[in-house]
Protein backbone atom coordinates (compact mmCIF):
# COMPACT_ATOMS: atom_id res chain seq x y z
CA UNK A 1 0.00 0.00 0.00
CA UNK A 2 1.46 3.33 -1.05
CA UNK A 3 1.50 5.89 1.73
CA UNK A 4 2.34 9.51 1.59
CA UNK A 5 1.99 11.13 5.00
CA UNK A 6 2.44 14.84 5.29
CA UNK A 7 5.74 15.99 6.76
CA UNK A 8 6.02 19.30 8.52
CA UNK A 9 9.12 21.33 7.84
CA UNK A 10 10.11 21.46 11.51
CA UNK A 11 10.44 17.70 11.62
CA UNK A 12 12.79 17.43 8.68
CA UNK A 13 16.22 16.17 9.69
CA UNK A 14 18.43 19.22 10.05
CA UNK A 15 22.17 19.63 10.04
CA UNK A 16 22.18 22.28 12.74
CA UNK A 17 22.85 20.15 15.79
CA UNK A 18 25.02 17.29 14.70
CA UNK A 19 28.55 16.30 15.62
CA UNK A 20 30.96 16.62 12.77
CA UNK A 21 33.39 13.74 12.47
CA UNK A 22 36.98 15.04 12.51
CA UNK A 23 39.62 13.84 10.04
CA UNK A 24 42.59 11.65 10.98
CA UNK A 25 44.68 12.92 13.95
CA UNK A 26 47.87 12.82 11.92
CA UNK A 27 46.39 14.57 8.86
CA UNK A 28 47.69 17.96 10.08
CA UNK A 29 51.20 16.51 10.43
CA UNK A 30 50.94 14.97 6.96
CA UNK A 31 49.87 18.29 5.46
CA UNK A 32 52.76 20.09 7.19
CA UNK A 33 55.23 17.52 5.80
CA UNK A 34 53.76 17.79 2.29
CA UNK A 35 53.90 21.56 2.44
CA UNK A 36 57.47 21.50 3.76
CA UNK A 37 58.36 19.72 0.52
CA UNK A 38 56.79 22.52 -1.53
CA UNK A 39 58.53 25.13 0.57
CA UNK A 40 61.92 23.38 0.23
CA UNK A 41 61.53 23.47 -3.53
CA UNK A 42 60.85 27.23 -3.41
CA UNK A 43 63.86 27.80 -1.15
CA UNK A 44 66.13 25.88 -3.57
CA UNK A 45 64.76 27.96 -6.45
CA UNK A 46 65.45 31.13 -4.49
CA UNK A 47 69.01 30.01 -3.70
CA UNK A 48 69.67 29.46 -7.40
CA UNK A 49 68.53 33.01 -8.09
CA UNK A 50 70.64 34.26 -5.19
CA UNK A 51 73.95 32.50 -5.84
CA UNK A 52 73.91 31.85 -9.58
CA UNK A 53 71.72 34.66 -10.89
CA UNK A 54 70.88 34.61 -14.61
CA UNK A 55 70.50 38.38 -14.34
CA UNK A 56 71.17 40.71 -11.41
CA UNK A 57 68.00 41.06 -9.33
CA UNK A 58 67.76 43.70 -6.60
CA UNK A 59 65.74 43.67 -3.35
CA UNK A 60 67.28 40.53 -1.84
CA UNK A 61 65.97 41.21 1.65
CA UNK A 62 62.42 41.86 0.47
CA UNK A 63 62.37 38.65 -1.56
CA UNK A 64 63.53 36.48 1.35
CA UNK A 65 61.14 38.31 3.64
CA UNK A 66 58.18 37.58 1.38
CA UNK A 67 59.25 33.95 1.04
CA UNK A 68 59.57 33.68 4.83
CA UNK A 69 56.07 35.07 5.42
CA UNK A 70 54.63 32.88 2.70
CA UNK A 71 56.39 29.82 4.14
CA UNK A 72 55.11 30.53 7.64
CA UNK A 73 51.54 30.88 6.33
CA UNK A 74 51.92 27.72 4.25
CA UNK A 75 53.05 25.64 7.19
CA UNK A 76 50.59 26.96 9.78
CA UNK A 77 47.53 26.91 7.51
CA UNK A 78 46.73 23.19 8.06
CA UNK A 79 46.62 23.87 11.81
CA UNK A 80 43.76 26.29 11.15
CA UNK A 81 42.07 24.64 8.18
CA UNK A 82 42.05 20.94 9.06
CA UNK A 83 40.04 21.29 12.32
CA UNK A 84 37.40 23.18 10.31
CA UNK A 85 36.96 20.21 7.99
CA UNK A 86 34.63 17.43 8.93
CA UNK A 87 32.01 15.04 7.70
CA UNK A 88 28.79 13.43 8.78
CA UNK A 89 27.65 10.04 7.60
CA UNK A 90 23.89 9.78 7.85
CA UNK A 91 21.49 7.03 6.90
CA UNK A 92 20.58 8.59 3.54
CA UNK A 93 23.39 10.99 2.73
CA UNK A 94 26.92 12.12 3.45
CA UNK A 95 27.83 15.70 4.28
CA UNK A 96 31.23 17.36 4.14
CA UNK A 97 32.23 20.80 5.35
CA UNK A 98 35.39 22.78 4.75
CA UNK A 99 36.71 26.31 4.67
CA UNK A 100 38.06 28.83 7.13
CA UNK A 101 36.98 32.13 5.60
CA UNK A 102 34.72 30.88 2.81
CA UNK A 103 32.88 28.02 4.44
CA UNK A 104 31.06 25.41 2.45
CA UNK A 105 28.84 22.48 3.34
CA UNK A 106 28.15 19.89 0.62
CA UNK A 107 25.61 17.09 0.84
CA UNK A 108 25.23 14.09 -1.48
CA UNK A 109 22.35 11.66 -1.12
CA UNK A 110 23.48 8.04 -1.53
CA UNK A 111 20.80 7.35 -4.13
CA UNK A 112 22.47 9.85 -6.49
CA UNK A 113 25.98 8.42 -6.24
CA UNK A 114 27.35 6.87 -9.43
CA UNK A 115 30.61 5.52 -8.10
CA UNK A 116 33.03 5.75 -5.22
CA UNK A 117 36.81 5.83 -5.23
CA UNK A 118 39.46 5.65 -2.54
CA UNK A 119 43.08 6.49 -3.18
CA UNK A 120 46.29 7.02 -1.23
CA UNK A 121 49.74 8.34 -2.06
CA UNK A 122 52.90 6.93 -0.44
CA UNK A 123 52.86 9.90 1.94
CA UNK A 124 49.20 9.13 2.76
CA UNK A 125 50.11 5.53 3.52
CA UNK A 126 52.94 6.56 5.82
CA UNK A 127 50.51 8.61 7.89
CA UNK A 128 47.71 6.05 7.53
CA UNK A 129 45.33 8.36 5.69
CA UNK A 130 43.37 8.00 2.46
CA UNK A 131 41.20 10.07 0.14
CA UNK A 132 37.55 9.27 -0.55
CA UNK A 133 36.00 10.56 -3.77
CA UNK A 134 32.30 10.43 -4.56
CA UNK A 135 30.93 10.89 -8.06
CA UNK A 136 27.42 11.91 -9.09
CA UNK A 137 25.96 12.25 -12.57
CA UNK A 138 26.88 15.23 -14.68
CA UNK A 139 29.75 16.40 -12.52
CA UNK A 140 33.24 16.71 -13.95
CA UNK A 141 35.85 15.13 -11.69
CA UNK A 142 35.16 14.23 -8.09
CA UNK A 143 31.99 15.79 -6.76
CA UNK A 144 32.99 15.33 -3.17
CA UNK A 145 36.58 14.74 -2.16
CA UNK A 146 37.44 14.03 1.46
CA UNK A 147 41.18 14.03 2.13
CA UNK A 148 42.80 12.87 5.35
CA UNK A 149 40.39 10.12 6.34
CA UNK A 150 41.84 7.25 8.37
CA UNK A 151 42.58 4.57 5.76
CA UNK A 152 40.29 1.94 7.30
CA UNK A 153 37.45 4.47 7.68
CA UNK A 154 37.78 5.42 4.02
CA UNK A 155 37.54 1.76 3.04
CA UNK A 156 34.54 1.16 5.31
CA UNK A 157 32.82 4.23 3.90
CA UNK A 158 33.49 3.11 0.35
CA UNK A 159 31.91 -0.28 0.93
CA UNK A 160 28.97 1.13 2.86
CA UNK A 161 28.20 3.91 0.37
CA UNK A 162 28.43 1.51 -2.58
CA UNK A 163 26.01 -0.79 -0.82
CA UNK A 164 23.58 2.05 -0.14
CA UNK A 165 23.90 3.41 -3.69
CA UNK A 166 23.39 -0.08 -5.11
CA UNK A 167 20.28 -0.61 -2.98
CA UNK A 168 18.76 2.57 -4.35
CA UNK A 169 19.55 1.55 -7.91
CA UNK A 170 17.74 -1.74 -7.45
CA UNK A 171 14.72 0.11 -6.13
CA UNK A 172 14.34 2.46 -9.04
Amino acid sequence: MFQNPEISLEHLPSLDHVDWQPLHDRYVAEQVVARTGTLAFLVVLMCVVEFAPPVEIPLTLLRWGVLGLFGAALLTWPLVAVPRQGYIVRDKDIVFRAGVLWRSVTAIPYNRIQHVETSSTPLNRHFGTATLKLFTAGGAGGDMKIDGLPADTAEQLRVMILEKAGASIEQS
Binding site: L101, W102, R103, S104, A107, I108, R112, T136, D143, M144
Partner: peptide, 14 residues
Protein backbone atom coordinates in the same frame (compact mmCIF):
# COMPACT_ATOMS: atom_id res chain seq x y z
CA UNK B 1 16.43 15.33 -9.64
CA UNK B 2 19.10 17.18 -7.64
CA UNK B 3 22.43 15.33 -7.38
CA UNK B 4 24.16 17.29 -4.64
CA UNK B 5 23.81 20.57 -2.78
CA UNK B 6 26.35 23.04 -1.47
CA UNK B 7 25.89 25.98 0.85
CA UNK B 8 28.71 28.51 0.84
CA UNK B 9 29.27 31.54 3.03
CA UNK B 10 31.93 34.19 2.85
CA UNK B 11 32.88 36.03 6.08
CA UNK B 12 30.79 38.98 4.89
CA UNK B 13 27.82 36.71 4.18
CA UNK B 14 28.12 35.13 7.63
Amino acid sequence: KVQRITIKQSPFQR
